[in-house]
Design a protein around this nucleic acid. Sequence first.
DNA 1: CATGAATGAGTATTCATTCAT
DNA 2: GATGAATGAATACTCATTCAT
Lengths: 215, 215, 215, 215
Amino acid sequence: MPSKSAPERRTDFVAAARELFEEKGFENTSVDDIATRLGVAKGLFYYYFESKEMLLDLIMEQMMSEIESAIAASMEKKGLTAIERLGELIKCSADVTFRSRTMLGYFHKERNRSLRFTMEKKALEMMIPALERIVRQGIEEKVFDTPYPREAAGAMLFVSTGMKELKPAEPSADDLVRLNRAMQLYAERIVGAAPGSLHVYNLMLPPELRGAKHD
Amino acid sequence: MPSKSAPERRTDFVAAARELFEEKGFENTSVDDIATRLGVAKGLFYYYFESKEMLLDLIMEQMMSEIESAIAASMEKKGLTAIERLGELIKCSADVTFRSRTMLGYFHKERNRSLRFTMEKKALEMMIPALERIVRQGIEEKVFDTPYPREAAGAMLFVSTGMKELKPAEPSADDLVRLNRAMQLYAERIVGAAPGSLHVYNLMLPPELRGAKHD
Amino acid sequence: MPSKSAPERRTDFVAAARELFEEKGFENTSVDDIATRLGVAKGLFYYYFESKEMLLDLIMEQMMSEIESAIAASMEKKGLTAIERLGELIKCSADVTFRSRTMLGYFHKERNRSLRFTMEKKALEMMIPALERIVRQGIEEKVFDTPYPREAAGAMLFVSTGMKELKPAEPSADDLVRLNRAMQLYAERIVGAAPGSLHVYNLMLPPELRGAKHD
Amino acid sequence: MPSKSAPERRTDFVAAARELFEEKGFENTSVDDIATRLGVAKGLFYYYFESKEMLLDLIMEQMMSEIESAIAASMEKKGLTAIERLGELIKCSADVTFRSRTMLGYFHKERNRSLRFTMEKKALEMMIPALERIVRQGIEEKVFDTPYPREAAGAMLFVSTGMKELKPAEPSADDLVRLNRAMQLYAERIVGAAPGSLHVYNLMLPPELRGAKHD
DNA sequence: CATGAATGAGTATTCATTCAT
DNA sequence: GATGAATGAATACTCATTCAT
């Protein structure tokens, strides 16, 4: 019976719920599952949250604002070139992608359909405009050349996130490097940048692979 | 109460279930919902299927093979150029995309996690190799130029499917045309095709818009 | 596992519920209690009723219409004198009183307050007008004499029902006869009838006591 | 958080509980509701009371003795006529009726059934003997004439309390006066008093209506 | 083939009660 | 005295599954 402080317990609940929702989906996680994982009684859940649904809302908002502030943080530095700025955005994108994917997994109910749709768009609506601004800046700086900046931003994003699905189950270092190079090449082609100029894509690789060549 | 023939009833069940799973998700569709939609008693379900879970498996397999044969059909024509072949594939892609997206929506259970992953890959594994073959053929035909055919195929696919998410809630004709042009342009850049050469992307548009220009 | 016919089971449920609601009140009767009393699984309840609340509504309506038709039946005979008519009403009143008292016991929720009030009134609104008509007829027939027929009807009713509460825990025959005589006397006084003229009050007694005198 | 003195806090709890039990019923009032209304923590309740049930018992007893002393107070004056004494009893009866009605509302549990019954009787057992003594005194004084003093007392009481239920939802002054006159008339007839002699019934009316006539 | 009554384990939620601080 | 975190049993309701007919 270690009576924890309220905020701490609340945090524990949220963390356990996030884990479980991700593992099994929202519908398939029972309040009891959550309590059990924490080793407390089910009733305690309702001491901290009004309902399972409310907790979901809370987690959603939390993720949203995590995404939002990650992006905002990466965009606020002054005096960077378009390509440097892209580097900054890339650094936070893994995180963003992960979170938004996670959220999507939560929704299955008919009544959530529209909400789900909204959320998908919203995650994009946060990432894409940031990337679009970078593309436009690049065009002004004459390092990019493309007639549809918004669509180019989208395309870069979809290629980056999609490429991950081409990864084999247990990718070798070479697989990773190769995919990364492809990602970079096609990003360059999409925005009309000089071959090799988007070396900042390197940042998507784990540090030890950043200089590597592939076969 | 004209006692239908067994195979027919089975088919009806599957159809009703597919509709409902799509509308409300697998978890939120009860066996009773399915029976009610068919206007039969819940008990009958278990005459035709071992369990709700089994029915899901069956529907999965069914969708898989639908995808498979749609792709196969589009690839079997002989004597086409790479670009013509791409046109064929595009014609069936809407269908394929729809089906694979649908399937993904069904999975949320922990025990289905690996299956889900497998499925995602599998859908790609069917579509991508087809597209990859086309890219390789295009390279041989000197109309494409790209060093990573498989990744290029993936990129084209991700751009195509992703672009749909950039559509506004109620897209104007112009929105659709613009997105389609962007898709085409970036596909061309990715595979290294001459600008305008992939006019077959037109086939993704509703017929009445196919010749259109956008502002 | 004796699979009863639906209407029969439904009836069983209603009967068991009425018993239990009366014994323990609506709030304190669980759906499980009801099922257990019938020796069936809890789930079966929901095969027959949408919710516990719905069942309550149903029972209420049922009681209401039982009351209504009991009263209507007693009033429809033609060509009776006021006093004969009173006899008819008395015959059904025990039943009516019982039922309306029962209903009152069901309501405890704040949100039911107004409903409860409505019901109380409604039960009275069915019984009193009937009795009032009899009083008016009696006045016309010159056997009654009272200036407030409606209030007189109410007073007769309240005296009759109230008197029951004066009964000792285990009343002797003499107690019963004495209470009945008092009831009759005060009814006569209220409506201004000749002493002894409302011998029909006898009908409230169990048959074996009807001729009796008390000490 | 000025730590109140024990007896004061206890009183506050009782008061809050009485309010809430009346508003929402015993079952529908949670210990938390009570604590919240007082602005203290739920746990404190159990410092002052063994259980919610115990608190109920306590409130019951309290109400009982309130009723008892109200009646006793009205009966202890010396040298009054029967009719004057009736006036005194009427003055405190509103209060008594209210309290006993309230108590009845609390009971719904099977295990409380007998208690409830007992209480109903008890409230009557306090009110009726008082009234009965008045009736007997009236008979001695030759202003009343009735063979069943106890039953007459009961009848008067039931008529008085019952008449309230004949009130329309929003009674006019005239409605009130008319009901009051009827009550008086039928009380007079029940105890065999001269018409108009029980003018003390006037005291049941709000002061401003006491002299009024009705149409 | 088809029905629909019956089951029972599972789910979210409530609440009286306890107790370490 | 007072707090509030923690418990656990109870409750209404759902649903996949079974089975006698």
